[in-house]
Write a protein that binds this DNA or RNA. Structure first.
Length: 462
RNA sequence: GGCGGCGUAGCCAAGUGGUAAGGCAGCGCUCUGCAAAAGCGCUAUUCAUCGGUUCAAAUCCGGUCGCCGCCUCCA
């Protein structure tokens, strides 16, 4: 398996630290609002990576942090006049509900920043002791000057950092030795939650939580760290600095970053109103599996242009797969399994895996999937039940990685549907097509689609 | 100013030196009471553009045009 490592800016063959195991850390949400569809592109991609490893036989230990203490969560709590913990819990619950809807496998641990203050304090203490950090007015800063590797991940050198062309460089309210230094611990300010610390009461900076929590759950040196491209600098750069400075060893072997998503070719922004949460889309009647399919179908290192039209197309593509599964389930011929078909299936599975193993080429993998669907469709009439079962097993195998075929939701009872179909058949025999169509339309309203075949009437859920 | 990315059919999107995958949409035919589904066939002499290297370029090199990201808390 090979993929692009941001750290080296090259495609690299994956080599795990501990045979058969993958330690995976993914930057989770800051829980001050509902995540938008762009956030979910990253989480769905991370889920794909994890599933590809699982598919390849690795055991994966996945940690995703929850940032429940920072400027934004504090501001939100103040705005709503609610306790911080109550506000963050609300968004944490919403986040997990969205992940379930998108069929994202849960992480093994979701550590919260507020529950790991001691670990962070310990890490800061080490950095102070080793001389990488300094205290100013009750705050603690990391001195990038003292970490010679600083800028390696983002491919920035100190000179260009000094140029500081970004408009976002704020005249920080805290005193630092150098503007580029970042805060590890923020001295207490009125109206903000704070924790006692040897260097003065305060709260943690953003970056330190990921270092402290990843170390705690994955050790000082682990395999893969992921996030959105915007995290490369400064967040991940700072994590590397903190962790390697403290531990005196390599932190993470592979850094993977998911490109952003734009909506109608424009950057998402609240002022443009082109902001979708998953809830917005589901409210429009969109299928969360179509959302997942769409988010997945563009290579992760390319900008994805999200449009409602694209979502529609994704839904149609998915319908093709579902129809295929439906056809297979209705195969009734008895007989032996065709060895030639079995070989075709094996080759297809190998090609599918190979495509994903090549820097997570989902488009290529989907192409492989549709090729086989086409091929099997062409010989559908010649299939036996044993053949169909083999193809269905193939679908299941692919879906274990793609995760785009959700379970069918509960609908009207089968017996009831069968009864309605019998009534319609009676009407058809009597050439009462108006009545027959009426029944078909009623069932359609309940999400049941009828298909007349030479072998009788079949039905399926939409 | 520094670093980096992208431009492939009506739309989405692979392919990165050997002669354009796949999906959606569309068209024709088969099947059908009508639908739906499915099948078969068709749909890019061409990969933003100009030039170069090569037996061979969407793929490599150089220029041009257009779009975008990062350079301290945005997935």
């Amino acid at each position: 398996m090979r993929f692009y490592n941001t750290l080296t800016r090259r495609l690299e063959e994956f080599r795990e630290i501990e045979k058969g195991n993958v330690g995976l850390y993914t930057c989770g949400p800051t829980v001050y609002d509902y995540p938008h569809i762009g956030n979910y592109r990253s989480y769905v991609f991370e889920d794909l990576v994890k599933r590809v490893f699982l598919h390849s036989g690795y055991r994966v230990r996945h940690v995703m942090n929850i940032t429940d203490i920072d400027d934004k969560t504090i501001r939100k709590a103040n705005e709503l006049g609610m306790p911080l913990a109550e506000v963050t819990q609300k968004y944490i619950d919403a986040f997990h509900a969205d992940l379930r809807a998108l069929n994202v496998l849960p992480a093994d641990v979701y550590p919260r920043a507020t529950e790991h203050i001691p670990e962070m304090l310990k890490l800061i203490a080490v950095l102070l002791e080793k001389g990488f950090a300094y205290v100013r007015d009750g705050s603690v800063y990391f001195s990038i000057e003292r970490f010679k590797e600083y800028g390696r991940l983002a491919n920035l050198d100190r000179a260009s950092l000094k140029a500081g062309a970004s408009a976002a460089v704020d005249a920080d309210e805290y005193e630092k030795e150098a503007v580029q230094d970042f805060v590890l611990w923020k001295g207490r300010k009125p109206g903000e939650p704070s924790w006692p610390a040897p260097f003065g009461e305060g709260r943690p900076g953003w970056h330190i939580e990921c270092s402290a929590m990843s170390m705690k759950y994955l050790g000082p040196h682990f395999d893969i760290h992921m996030g959105g491209v915007d995290n490369i600098f400064p967040h991940h750069e700072n994590e590397i600095a903190q962790s390697e400075a403290a531990n005196g060893q390599a932190f993470v072997n592979y850094w993977l970053h998911c490109q952003h998503l734009v909506i109608d070719n424009k950057k998402m922004s609240k002022s443009l109103g082109n902001f979708y949460t998953l809830g917005d889309l589901l409210g429009r009647g969109c299928d969360p599996m179509a959302v997942r399919y769409l988010l997945l179908s563009t290579h992760y290192r390319k900008l994805l242009n999200f449009t409602l039209e694209g979502l529609e197309m994704a839904g149609q593509a998915l319908a093709r797969v579902k129809n295929f599964v439906f056809s297979l389930k209705n195969v009734e011929a008895e007989g032996e399994a065709d060895p030639e078909l079995a070989a075709v299936i094996r080759a297809s599975l190998a090609a599918f895996s190979a495509s994903l193993a090549d820097d997570f080429n989902v488009s290529g993998a989907l192409g492989v999937m549709f090729d086989l669907i086409h091929e099997v469709n062409a010989r559908l009439n010649a299939l036996t039940r044993a053949d169909a079962a083999a193809v269905l097993a193939w679908v299941e195998r692919l879906n274990a990685v793609l995760g785009v075929l959700g379970e069918a939701d509960a609908g009207p009872l089968e017996a009831e549907i069968e009864a309605r179909i019998a009534l319609r058949q009676q009407a058809r025999l009597e050439k009462n097509f108006a009545r027959a169509d009426e029944i078909r339309a009623e069932l359609k309203k309940q999400g049941i689609v009828l298909i007349d075949t030479p072998g009788g009437v079949k039905w399926k859920k939409e």
